[in-house]
Design a protein around this nucleic acid. Structure first.
Lengths: 196, 196
DNA sequence: CGTTTAAGTGACATTTAAGACATTTGGATA
DNA sequence: TATCCAAATGTCTTAAATGTCACTTAAACG
């Protein structure tokens, strides 16, 4: 179980180490002490909770911990909103990009756990986007579901180019949910898996 | 993650500390509070965004020192390469994006000091891109030179939408260099100013 | 083990938030 | 132009939070 030291937290919050120790001593931030001289350790979960509670930004190093963000890239606003609604209801954080530029920048900015990608968008080739995502270190591990009304051959090509799954339009909400849940399990879905 | 205190902001804006606190409380300036007594912290991007929004000058200590990266967004590879060659010779680090998706993601990934943007690219509106850049805190301070073969009216609109400069195609390399050098001075150009 | 790195502690310096009140600023109006 | 008004900003004060420094000591690592 990875934990954080006071020094690491101090850097992430841009605050003095002394201050972090005081937060812990005061009980603002939950932590525990090592037996030796009482060096502090904080569980990532507790730290994130602390940040959220105080409206403090989450440092980039920690995004990815329990990442539930999903980016929907689709130029048809109605489709995008529909997908967004379904996923948000299930507990995911969704963002919509309606053109390639937004798609690219939001992908880098938010580093979502999953992207739904419309293969055919004006001005950009979905295959190029796939290749870009797979060859860029920051996003190589991002899950991609390609959504398209194109024929089976095109969808197969998308899989070959690195898509984790494809969905032919029109698609069923339940189909989408099943795919997404499998790729980005929510914490609550994990319970039955937890072992000791 | 470097942040700013109210005191630092007060000095940079040449304003009373009390006033900065009021800006934050009023919601004009986005910030967050430390747990203790609620000392305020402001992320640099948010501060720069605030400055931009109010047409306030950006303090020299905040302009990315030594950031020589320039992103060239142009779907005509030949034009892009030509621009890249010129700027690279002058000592800048250049990257080329040939579609909107690449443009957006490279912009966020590299956070270049300057972007040259072709107004007319397939699938995306250059004006939308401008608006996006200006309203996104991470990129609000990025210099943008719009390059286009469109008429004077379109170029004027680009300026209105937040472009720092426009260049009508076809353009002269020297014109481009002058603009870029003015906006992103190279360290070597400063030599004559250094004292002591 | 011995060495290096990083964390804790106490004492003290500095900075900050907040209330109450003074002052300035930028309109509106006559 | 002079006058007035309301909102924004500055001033002063104090207690609390945070930063700094020097030094000690645990923890990490070969």
């Amino acid at each position: 179980m990875k934990t954080l030291t006071t020094g690491e937290i101090a850097k992430m919050c841009d605050v003095n180490l002394r201050t972090v120790i005081r937060w812990i001593d005061r009980g603002d931030l939950k932590g525990f002490k090592l037996p030796g001289r009482g060096n502090n350790r904080v569980q990532i979960e507790d730290f994130v909770h602390f940040l959220n509670e105080h409206g403090m930004p989450i440092p980039p190093e920690l995004v990815g911990e329990g990442n539930r963000r999903i980016l929907i890239i689709d130029d048809e606003a109605a489709v995008a909103r529909s997908i967004g609604r379904v996923l948000r209801t299930a507990g995911y954080d969704t963002t919509i990009a309606t053109d390639g530029f937004q798609g690219g920048s939001l992908l880098m900015k938010q580093q979502p756990a999953l992207v739904t990608l419309d293969l055919r968008m004006p001005g950009i080739s979905g295959y190029d986007v796939l290749k870009f995502i797979r060859t860029t270190p920051e996003t190589a591990a991002t899950k991609v579901i390609v959504i398209s009304a194109l024929d089976q051959l095109s969808l197969q090509r998308a899989l070959d180019e690195g898509a984790d799954a494809v969905l032919a339009k029109p698609f069923d909400n339940q189909q989408l949910m099943n795919l997404v849940k499998k790729m980005v399990p929510l914490a609550s879905e994990h319970v039955t898996h937890s072992v000791e």
